[in-house]
Amino acid sequence: MILYSFYIFDRHTECIYSRKWNTRPISSSTKSARPQSGVSITSNGDVAPATRKALSKEDDAKLIFGLVFSLRNMAQKLGGEDDSFLCYRTGEYKLHYYETPTRLKFVMLTDHGAKTQRSALHQIWALLYVEYVVKNPLSPVEHPGGIGVANVMFEQGLDAFVERVVLPT
């Protein structure tokens, strides 16, 4: 399984932690890894990626938050109040989603063949986030700008967890 990235969003819609692994592996000759084409509007009505610059890290996180938020609302609208969005898959990648009762959102991007990682996200929350961030007396209650989340223990724990649990599956 290939792991691309991992994000935590707090209830104020802010990205408080993000981590990337082997994203955009080998770009072919051009700088951008996205396919180039001279067509600006294709028959699908899409704006061709060629016209768009690569997104910065913050923009990526904002886009993912917006996406997850809309999907969650859509799932609730169609599936009823108790429904929750679990994951989606495209031809290239798969996005896993887990939301805690305090509306903390955990998002993970993997390759499209991966099994569901919801339990892994739950474990990251229970075993790492709660242990090293929530129980840390030095970390603030809220984490504006990600203060207190990316501490050494949490990062080491996440690395070890990914090595041990996420990647072998």
């Binding site: 067509v39 929750s84 679990l86």
Partner: peptide
């Protein structure tokens, strides 16, 4: 395809977009 052309490409290799969405219900 990398050369500019006006015709839409017949061999799209761009990302596919959302294919399957799973929720609890």
């Amino acid at each position: 395809i990398t050369t500019p052309s006006l015709a839409p490409s017949p061999f799209p290799s761009r990302p596919s977009g959302l294919e399957v969405l799973e929720t609890q219900n």
